[in-house]
């Protein structure tokens, strides 16, 4: 690919990066490429779950219960004779839904709170930082268990817990970046031109903050998926008829002495997803934030 060359009014050429250069850089990293393929695989499988699944994920077939993998049932069946492959495809939807909603939510909330802490008055900064430290004092699963005791298990509970516990991470990064940008010349210049606080924050600070936050978000997705699957594995996540990788693992655990296939089948998509997003996130970090890349 060649860099497009444009000329300014004065006639001096300026080099401009090709639009998708970051994508090429990403694909040149073998692990990043591998991660991208795994992520695409999972996203496509979840999106096309209705077309791809050979059976209805709720359909019972008691005669064929706990069947091993065969051409009829690609990954075997569970204790109620439901097709595991179809359930895994639909479980991917739940996992990605939880991940997108809660990572998106914590990103936005963390961004707002972090900018407030970094740009706002000193007392607000101190108060928010103390709050974040307090939230981070909990082991995540323990906090989740306490909330579930009171509210009862559901998809919304999981999303609430994940947002509350991961906002501090995003807010801290935003705050640190805001503090370091706050007194740079371009912000001071903008303010001396009469720009209001909101304008400075939204159109000048925000674009500089978004890259590190997106990297953190892509590293966070596997963590969130793990929490959802973990809570569903404990029987405290998604409610039974809805398929989730965690509840497939839970069924598999109950029948582990009868068949190994449920546990194996339930674990594979989780491994693929977590590995995919982690490798992708690492590669993205190397591309967007070369300072972080140390002697690799």
């Amino acid at each position: 690919m060649t860099a497009a060359i444009e000329t300014t009014e004065a006639g001096a050429p300026i080099k401009r990066e090709p639009r998708f250069s970051w994508l090429w850089q990403l694909l040149r990293d073998p692990l990043g490429c591998f991660g991208l393929i795994l992520v695409l695989l999972i996203v496509l499988a979840a999106a096309g779950a209705d077309i791809l699944s050979p059976y209805d994920y709720k359909a019972l077939d008691i005669k064929a219960r706990l069947a091993p993998p065969s051409f009829e049932h690609l990954l075997g069946t569970d204790n109620l004779g439901r097709d595991t492959f179809s359930r895994i495809l639909h479980g991917g939807r739940i996992a990605l839904y939880v991940a997108l909603v809660s990572v998106g939510g914590s990103l936005v909330l963390g961004l707002i709170l972090g900018m407030l802490a970094g740009y706002g008055p000193r007392w607000l900064d101190n108060l928010l930082m103390l709050l974040f430290d307090a939230v981070r004092a909990f082991p995540v699963i323990m906090f989740a268990l306490a909330v579930i005791t009171v509210v009862g298990p559901s998809l919304e509970t999981i999303i609430f817990v994940v947002i509350v516990t991961s906002v501090p991470g995003y807010a801290r990064i935003t705050r640190a970046a805001t503090l370091s940008l706050k007194n740079t010349e371009f912000i001071l210049a903008e303010r001396s031109l009469g720009a209001g606080t909101v304008r400075v924050m939204v159109s000048h600070l925000l674009p500089n903050l978004i890259a590190p936050l997106l990297i953190l978000a892509s590293m966070d997705i596997p963590v969130v998926i793990t929490i959802e699957a973990g809570l569903s594995f404990l029987g405290l996540g998604v409610k039974p008829p809805t398929p989730s990788w965690g509840s497939i693992l839970n069924d598999g655990y109950s029948f582990i002495r009868n068949t190994p296939w449920l546990v194996i089948a339930g674990g594979i998509p989780l491994i693929i997803t977590t590995l995919g997003f982690t490798f992708l996130g690492e590669a993205m970090r190397d591309v967007f934030d070369p300072k972080m890349k140390k002697d690799r």
Partner: peptide, 16 residues
């Protein structure tokens, strides 16, 4: 990176 990414309960279940 692989070890970090894979959830501990999957490791536990497969080990079991």
């Amino acid at each position: 990176v692989g070890c970090i990414a894979i959830p501990s309960f999957i490791v536990g279940l497969y080990a079991l």
